[in-house]
């Protein structure tokens, strides 16, 4: 019971991170119908921006953790959005009217490029950051097992809930959100009605990247280590989350993220920590085989 509760807390933390990244996949798929395989690497870049900024702040003598976190979040979100914008502008927009496969290949190329760029400029070794917010609350102790939630976990879960709420409001209630949904449903007509579709697509990439940046900062703070390869693993898990929830569905991405996070925690704890990723990928294969539209997605219907 205590162990299950602990895994629930860990799983929610992990699921929050996957959910934040998964939104970027699902939004981009919704608007231009392609999987942005470089998204995981944009997330990885944000983690490096976080490490650099943390280090810089430490060198400047900033010792207040909340202040440092706030600065790092702002810096990471700004720079990572710029990355998201640049990726779309250079790798996808020139291929907007080409075959469906071309931007996909371009995405994989962009992913390899980002990994190598970081590897060359930052080194292939794991980069550590000093532990932060490692204090926490012990909820209860049963026998030798105590259930604990750390400040970092609280921060991740709370921040994710706030961001998801804000993001849902943005998409469902604002003029930009309406235009974004309009582009998802009919890009050409949206342009005919007088909206700059390219601008809306750019903003979509930037929002996706910004949410991934928050995830990147949180992970850096939570685990304390990053390397140039974390984007691949996190990316493919967040992608699984997006597929599980139904690609194109925003609530689906959040739900999918939570399920994958929980599954991974429980699998690692009860079955085998070495093979925890199997669970995720079994889900990916199962969903693709038996329910390709995901839990909350709409079935793909060919337009007449």
């Amino acid at each position: 019971m205590a162990q299950a509760l602990q895994q629930l807390i860990n799983g929610l933390t992990l699921g929050s991170v996957y959910g934040l990244i998964a939104i970027g996949y699902t939004m981009v798929y919704g608007i231009i119908g392609m999987i942005n395989f470089a998204h995981g690497d944009v997330y990885m870049v944000s983690a490096f921006i976080a490490v650099t900024t943390f280090t810089l702040l430490a060198a400047l003598g900033v010792s207040s953790v909340p202040l440092a976190l706030l600065v790092v979040l702002v810096v990471a979100v700004l720079f990572t959005s710029a990355y998201g914008w640049t990726v779309e502008r250079t790798a996808y927009r020139p291929l907007r009217n080409s075959t469906r496969l071309a931007p996909l290949i371009s995405a994989i190329g962009m992913s390899i490029f980002l990994q190598n760029m970081v590897q060359v400029t930052q080194g292939a070794r794991v980069k550590p950051v000093p532990p932060m917010l490692s204090d926490g609350i012990t909820l209860f102790t049963s026998g030798s097992y105590s259930v604990r939630i750390s400040s970092a976990q609280i921060l991740i879960i709370v921040l994710t809930v706030v961001l998801m709420a804000g993001f849902t409001w943005l998409i469902t209630r604002t003029a930009f959100g309406r235009q974004q949904r309009a582009c998802e449903q009919d890009r050409l007509v949206t342009a005919f009605l007088g909206y700059n579709v390219d601008r809306i697509i750019s903003l979509t990439f930037m929002i996706g990247a910004a949410l991934a940046a928050v995830a990147g900062v949180m992970v850096t703070m939570y685990y304390g280590v990053v390397d140039f390869y974390i984007g691949f693993v996190a990316g493919i898990k967040a992608f699984t989350a997006a597929v599980l929830g139904g690609v194109g569905s925003l609530p689906g991405a959040m739900l999918g993220g939570l399920i994958i996070g929980l599954l991974e925690s429980f699998w690692a704890s009860y079955l085998s920590p070495e093979y925890k990723d199997i669970g995720t990928f079994v889900i990916l294969i199962m969903v693709l085989m038996f329910r390709p539209s995901g839990l909350l997605g709409r079935p793909e219907v060919e337009k007449v």
Binding site: A182, Q185, F192, G194, V197
Partner: peptide, 28 residues
């Protein structure tokens, strides 16, 4: 002129097949 600026000049199109936004409300 870029596509999205044409309507700003005062042309509106009712496209073939209607192409309303099915998953938006009428108000939207």
């Amino acid at each position: 002129l870029p596509t999205h600026q044409i309507s700003h000049r005062g042309i509106a199109l009712v496209p073939e097949g209607r192409r309303i936004y099915p998953r938006m409300t009428i108000l939207e």
